[in-house]
């Protein structure tokens, strides 16, 4: 019991895997529990060596700059709305250029702006237009997204004017009867501060955050849809693509028209639907090399199907 058995250092001098594996079994059969111990040491050692080999051997090819074509690594950070789309674009780009890696990370639009500005990321992602203080950056729109007001499918209201929306969200109209619906109180669903959708909504209706009188505050689109789905008196605003996808899947929600214009992805694509935002890739400097190639690819027809698959709207180029 007190014999510690073979130390890991001894193992390094023992013969290579072939004959050694036979040794493991014979040791196990011969000395009982000691064999297990040895096996575990070997396992740990193999993992360690394997890990080191992986790190040193396979870490290189992406950086190697030999032969024709593009190579290297691009890091994108920012908007969690854009991240799945950018990751799919990156995957397709990697298929065309096998020695390129596009690493997409998330963290929110503000982070995308900050990382692009500081150079931490090669490209930032922001699911809104650049603001006044962000003129030092270059924005490359890759897709569009509309924001639609949604209500429960049983709600008889089919459209709201801008004034009615403002009145509902500021608490001046408190029942659906005030906008031609039933005699029921309105549950106002609002997005949390810092969400790009909320900024787009407030911007369009020219509202200050403090003016809004919400009954429910939510985080992301899915949550908004679930809230409305479970409450026939609720009104919320979410991404048109997501809402349309859920409606087609049979979720009992209805997208309200903005005045005369129906909330459809087609109307967003044509630039008719008024409450819309661009999905932007952002760089600090005029992009060159790999970054330029990827930005061109992300704004080409080759990715239209990806944009639609992620429920966004290809923009007119």
């Amino acid at each position: 019991m007190l014999n510690p058995g073979p130390s890991p250092r001894k193992k390094l001098t023992s013969p290579l895997p072939g004959p050694e594996s036979a040794g493991v079994f014979s040791a196990r059969a011969g000395t009982g529990p000691g064999g297990w111990k040895r096996l575990l040491w070997r396992g740990a050692l193999a993992l360690l060596i394997g890990g080191c080999l992986l790190t040193t051997a396979c870490g290189k090819p992406a950086d190697a700059d030999s032969g024709p074509g593009l190579s290297g690594k691009l890091v994108l950070t920012g908007s969690s709305t854009i991240a799945p789309l950018a990751a799919e674009m990156g995957r397709r780009f990697e298929e065309v250029h096998p020695r390129v890696r596009i690493d997409v990370q998330t963290g929110g639009s503000s982070r995308g702006i900050a990382d692009a500005r500081s150079g931490t990321a090669d490209i930032g992602m922001a699911s809104r237009a650049l603001k006044d203080g962000e003129g030092d950056l270059l924005a490359f729109p890759i897709a569009g997204d509309g924001v639609a007001l949604i209500v429960h499918a049983d709600n008889p209201v089919v459209s709201l004017t801008d004034e009615e929306v403002v009145a509902i969200y500021t608490g001046r109209i408190e029942t659906w009867k005030g906008v031609g619906g039933l005699e029921r109180p309105i549950t106002v669903v609002h997005k949390a501060d810092g969400r790009a959708t909320q900024e787009v909504f407030l911007d369009y209706f020219d509202l200050q955050p403090s003016q809004v009188q919400p009954d429910v505050v939510i985080g992301d689109n899915q949550q908004g849809i679930k809230t409305v789905q479970g409450n026939p008196d609720a009104i919320a605003y979410v991404s048109i693509g997501t809402a349309d996808f859920e409606r087609r899947r049979g979720t009992p929600i209805k997208l309200l028209a903005a005045g005369e214009i129906a909330a459809t992805t087609e109307n967003v694509a044509r630039g008719l639907f008024p409450i819309a935002r661009p999905l932007n890739l952002v760089t600090r400097d005029q992009p060159t090399g790999l970054a330029a190639a990827f930005l061109d690819f992300a704004r080409s027809d080759a990715v239209d199907d990806l944009i639609e698959a992620q429920l966004f709207v290809p923009i007119e180029r």
Partner: peptide, 14 residues
């Protein structure tokens, strides 16, 4: 999410 990240490609190194 901010350290090992969001990439779903098969990793080839640590």
């Amino acid at each position: 999410i901010f350290t090992s990240g969001y990439v779903t490609r098969m990793p080839s190194s640590l």
